[in-house]
């Protein structure tokens, strides 16, 4: 270095000072991403092609066998996939509807609005595991507060968490309860930012309240709704905590969703190869679904621009 500073300065460098500085700035994040995202994904992909269980130290290469097994597993096809999509669609739809309704309510000025807004947002601040635990106790078939309240108002006694559909409905409602506030805040912010003239024009055009909602509010909100639905749908596909805490996928695997399925294969049955393949299969399905949704969202954005 010290012997020829002049020639070094004249040699064209691969990267300019600005580029090197930029690389330096993104290096920490890149390092974290690499070691905790990219490397595990690669290890997982490698595992999915091997017989990688704790009793088989050989890690025998088995090619696509695990994938074939997952995609031909009747539990995966007939229970896990339908459950996952039912949860995704119903949770996103219901929390969108409730979120929109709450956002409309909170848009008005009324006494105690701030208090109500804070209470509405609470579920978002609680860890899903805790929410799910609360729900599990509320629906406990002996001591559950909601079980007993429902019995008082005449709802027939059901083993809320020991039958497939009642427990799955509770999973959906828990997810809706957790995610409604998220829709509420985003839609409330969007509502407050809408231009007021189209509303005034509609008022002069004698539109009804419902007409104003469907012909002014919804079209104006469409881009925001589209992005919210896209993000939430992808996220809902991976739901784990609520299901695991509430039912653990039971009774008899009947409420298992995709991520619970992968978790059970890998860490309960300790078949790491099979679990990794299940996760990979889910990723492939989600990629396809995500791309489809993304195309729809793009169209929605274009139309409303």
């Amino acid at each position: 270095m010290s012997m020829a500073p002049v020639s070094a300065a004249h040699r064209p460098r691969l990267l300019g000072e600005k580029e090197r500085f930029m690389l330096l700035l993104i290096a920490p994040a890149a390092l974290v991403l690499l070691s905790f995202e990219v490397v595990p994904i690669l290890i997982g992909m490698n595992a999915s092609f091997r017989d990688w269980s704790l009793v088989n130290p050989q890690k025998t290469w088995v090619g696509l066998r695990h994938y074939v097994e997952v995609f031909t597993d009747p539990v995966f096809l007939k229970i896990v996939l339908p459950n996952t999509f039912i949860l995704m669609v119903s949770s996103v739809t219901l929390s969108l509807v409730f979120g929109l309704a709450l956002a409309h309510l909170l848009k008005r000025q009324f006494f105690g609005r701030i208090l109500i807004q804070t209470v509405v947002l609470l579920p978002l601040t609680i860890a899903p595991v805790i929410t799910a635990t609360m729900m599990r106790w509320s629906f406990n078939d002996q001591f559950g507060i909601l079980t007993n309240l429902l019995a008082v108002i005449g709802v027939p006694q059901v083993g809320w968490l020991s039958e497939r559909w009642p427990s799955f409905i509770i999973i959906i409602l828990t997810d809706v309860w957790i995610w409604t506030p998220w829709f509420t805040i985003i839609l409330l912010a969007a509502l407050q930012g809408l231009p007021k003239e189209p509303y005034e024009a509609a008022q002069i055009d004698a539109a009804s309240k419902w007409g104003i909602f469907t012909h002014v509010t919804l079209p104006l909100l469409r881009p925001v709704i589209a992005v919210c639905v896209l993000i939430r749908a992808i996220d809902a596909f991976r739901t784990f905590d609520q299901v695991w805490v509430l039912t653990g996928g039971g009774p008899a695997r009947s409420t298992e969703v995709f991520s619970v399925y992968a978790y059970v294969e890998a860490f309960v049955n300790l078949d790491l190869g099979r679990g990794a393949a299940a996760a990979g299969a889910g990723a492939i399905i989600m990629l396809a679904v995500g791309l489809g949704l993304y195309a729809i969202v793009n169209r929605a954005m274009e139309v409303s621009r």
Binding site: P195, E197, P198, A201, A202, V216
Partner: peptide, 27 residues
């Protein structure tokens, strides 16, 4: 009365025809 706004305030998802017809349909 009928009003024209500075930023047009048209109904973005409706065709021009439907924009013109909206006030009459409501009536």
């Amino acid at each position: 009365i009928a009003m024209v706004f500075q930023n047009y305030a048209l109904y973005q998802h409706m065709t021009v025809y439907d924009n013109l017809a909206f006030g009459l349909r409501n009536r």
